[in-house]
Design a protein around this nucleic acid. Structure first.
Lengths: 195, 195, 195, 195
DNA sequence: CATGAATGAGCGTTCATTCAT
DNA sequence: GATGAATGAACGCTCATTCAT
């Protein structure tokens, strides 16, 4: 594996530090408006030095997105394994998604949602695979839940509808309000239930 | 005021032509990646000539967004006026929104959804007003519908959830598929109904 | 005489209005930093319309300078004709120069002093002739004054020295101070006198 | 601090090279008419590379002016320290000023005199301080000279008059004429002496 | 590993000037 | 005489990327 690979395996601490800083900056300022000098400053490096760790700026964007979606997928897999029954698994969908999107992985996931069109055609497919893996977990659980009558049977459209709802929270949810992330997850789940 | 520019008072046809071209380009390439030379080419003008019609590139972005949200709001107002009963009005919400977002105003509305952070702090408030006017219509109709038991009573969150669902269609809906926009509106509405 | 000639003869009132506005703007903002739109605004014309009155922006600069130096020369000629004796004529030099430079013709003369290098090589000679005519008057009077022992005999250098002194007043003289232009002229004259 | 940059602390040789080239270009063509591409050409750099050394074009203008006035002030301080007696110090004023203005620092000082209005309001004060320091030296020496009766006692106005005379030499003095700078200094001094 | 300096293409914007109406 | 729209070249500046040290 070359030392320029964007995969997660050999991520030195410097690389991870950079990815995390990039996630925050890309989210706050947008990918285009974030300069490599900004990125360098954020980790105490000259802009030229970044190119030892990443071949291009876009590679940093890809790394940010991959981190966001992968770690959320891993969390969801773990939560689903632990959950007993369709109802609990359905609940896990909402809780893991919102905890990730509105919490730890917020920056990376927002970048994933809003900088999709900053990707070149060459890099998009790799991320689509990661995204599809995540959505496949959702589909499975929704199908189970529909089989038990917990949600309406139009699960394909339901998956898209729910993911749209949850993604959108990022635009209006305020951490410092009276509504906790967990309560929000419960209330959004309630809206989706048949009864 | 020319008789061909019904929406915005002094918009000459050249201005409108530019706004429409800008909507398409900003949507397809992103605001930052669209150059004023691209915009000029799209309407057969030198890049410098654009600045006779708009003071800055950002002014074009604002005009695009304002056009998208204003014309959708007008269509919704007209549809609600024509609709009899809570059920019909609820349906109008879904149909107008999707017809606009996936049809005529697609480009402008997508720009509104995805280039929000390209606005400067100075221009954002004006657009927030337009957006809030549109969402207030939604809130009214949802409250009516909840009063009649058509939807669940948590209408504040419901409004946000539904708008998130509908906005997200832009990411996956394909015009050339077997699903028409009208059918999509009906099926998404069905998911939101209590029964 | 073509209607685009920069000479004074056929100056319509619009032309003169423009020249005076240009003098003020060129002085306040500099020639390069003054746009033809600024000039148009100042006289209530669109920028394109200026080019009916002047072929180029530089022609306006030339007209401003020519106005400044010509009218000062005329005033000096009149004052010298009226003055009796070398001492009175010497005094007229200082008074006319400062009244013009710090008063009515201030803007035009400052432009003459400070925008010399904004002229093209083609237009400079015409203005040099006007300037030399003015300086020749100074030389005559200084020679007379030296012959009577009023000033030192090195009149060539003296002329340059004195004109430098007087030109420089524009950089520091404040109209609203306690020193009147007339007093300033007297005191500068006193510094030049042998006794 | 390199041992080759005695005047301004962190001026690398590239910076100084640029300042000197800028002085010449700003003087010959004017600040506004000199493009950053001209400046780059003059030192063998791409225009964009200039902005590694200076944040803006105006910063180069300020550096040019500061260099001109600072180095002249230093020379004058040195000459005054070496001079014995009021007469010698008075002479130093003229000789140092003209040697600087018509010699080594010509370009930078001319820029200082003629591009004052190209400075923004924010940068002007810093240079006014430097200019005032220089003029304060003049005032001291003139006061001494007046006390000994060498020059007329109206020293405040005299300072301004003399500086105007000397500044103006730049407009007419030709290096290749029969008059040397040193002779010119002596003859201008002679004009200022009471006897 | 990291820096400092440079590249070079491109960016949004300006502006004197032109010209059909 | 004047306008409104357009031109087109140029401008100051930005920035991802390169590379010798």
């Amino acid at each position: 594996m070359s030392r320029h690979t964007p995969h997660l395996a050999d991520d030195s601490s410097r690389r991870m530090e950079l990815v995390r800083a990039a996630a925050r900056l890309f989210r706050d300022q947008g990918y285009e408006r974030t300069t490599v000098r900004d990125l360098g400053n954020a980790v105490g490096l000259q802009s030229g030095s970044l190119f030892y760790h990443f071949r291009t700026k876009e590679e940093m964007l890809v790394a940010v997105m991959a981190l966001g979606i992968s770690s959320t997928t891993e969390q969801l897999e773990a939560a689903l394994k632990a959950a007993k029954g369709a109802r609990a698994r359905l609940s896990a969908l909402f809780h893991v998604h919102l905890n990730s999107l509105l919490g730890e992985n917020q920056a990376a996931l927002e970048v994933m949602l809003y900088e999709w069109h900053s990707l070149s055609d060459a890099t998009r497919p790799g991320l689509i695979i990661l995204r599809d893996r995540y959505e496949a977990l959702w589909q499975q659980v929704l199908d189970e839940a529909a089989a038990e009558g917990l949600v309406k049977p139009d699960t394909h459209l339901l998956r898209r509808s729910l993911l749209g709802s949850l993604h959108w929270t990022v635009q209006w949810y305020k951490r410092d309000g009276e509504l906790s992330v967990s309560e929000l997850a419960d209330r959004l789940l309630a809206l989706a239930l048949t009864a």
